[in-house]
Amino acid sequence: MGTGLNPSYFIGLSAALFAIGMYGALSKKNIISVLISIELMLCAVNINLVAFNKFLTPDAFLGQIFAIFIITVAAAEVGLGLALIIAISRRRETNNLDDLDWLRW
């Protein structure tokens, strides 16, 4: 490569990012914070894919294409999530997960 980088830096970065996202998704009480944490986890995946693409298969853009698909689908999912949050806060003025107790959690 000649850049002095090796894949383990990228794996370490993405693992750290994934762990932070996972922690946020499990510990945060605000629905929007949880959605942001899930996005963080997906970012970790994208870093992994692009880095592996660069080091493993530099001629075929498999990982980069995959990353673009993930970004697109994640946007759709977040759009749906925000719509649900608006619908819930109209019924009951909350966006806190602890208040969602109509069903037994």
Partner: peptide, 29 residues
């Protein structure tokens, strides 16, 4: 109840997709 089930499904499905994708990216690696 339906809305609450929807947001719970969305959050947990999103999280499980992220875990699945991270697994796929490692297998690719």
């Amino acid at each position: 109840k339906s809305l609450e089930a929807g947001i719970k499904y969305l959050l947990l499905a999103g999280m499980s997709s992220a875990v699945l994708l991270y697994g796929l990216s490692l297998v690719y690696g």
